[in-house]
């Protein structure tokens, strides 16, 4: 059962990824990315990472994707035109990507990760255990994260202000 779920989710994720890079209209790329996010959240659940699953659905599939959709709505649906400039880029990138995939493939052959030994799944990956980790050992990075988000929010507001608003 879990294997079937894995393969369905993996197929969805790969199909969505191919959709992201092949669709000409940005809005379709964004919607394909939502498919990828949902499929990945199912995989996180299979990996017994419940909190990451919830965060993935809310933060990524919810907030970040809505942000992308808003920006597309703001900028208008611009279709991408394939220009004739720098045609060799495509072939060069194909070569580069093949080399990269070969490297990753070779690395994956080196590791022989099988199934992990049974663990206590009543504690692993639950909100409780994540919270304990986040608020004790990793409290300092967690607090720094809030500063990062604040800086990002201020930067976004500053960058997207209107012309002539800077008094």
């Amino acid at each position: 059962m879990a294997i079937a779920i894995f393969f369905v989710a993996a197929a969805l994720a790969v199909a969505g990824g191919i959709g992201v890079i092949t669709f000409r209209q940005p809005i379709r790329s964004v919607l394909s990315l939502v498919v990828v996010m949902i499929a990945l959240s199912i995989l996180f659940l299979l990996l017994s990472a419940q909190f990451i699953f919830v965060a993935q659905v809310i933060v990524y599939a919810g907030a970040v994707m809505v942000l992308f959709l808003f920006v597309i709505a703001l900028l208008g649906p611009a279709k991408e035109i394939a220009k004739g400039r720098l045609r060799f880029q495509t072939w060069l990138s194909a070569l580069f990507v093949l080399a990269l995939f070969g490297l990753i493939w070779a690395m994956l052959q080196g590791v022989q990760y099988r199934q992990p030994e049974q663990t206590d799944l009543s504690t692993f990956g639950t909100v409780q255990s994540i919270g304990i980790g986040l608020f004790t050992k990793y409290l300092y990075p967690f607090e720094l994260t809030s500063i990062l988000l604040l800086v990002a929010a201020i930067g976004a507001i500053y960058l997207s202000r209107r012309e002539g608003d800077d008094r």
Binding site: A2, I3, I5, V14, L43, L45, Q50, T119
Partner: peptide
């Protein structure tokens, strides 16, 4: 909570992540 994921090899997930 066990979704049955412990039957799955970790390398499958790694391969999928590499493809993505």
């Amino acid at each position: 909570f066990d979704a049955g994921g412990s039957q799955l090899d970790t390398s499958w997930f790694l391969l999928l992540a590499a493809v993505l």
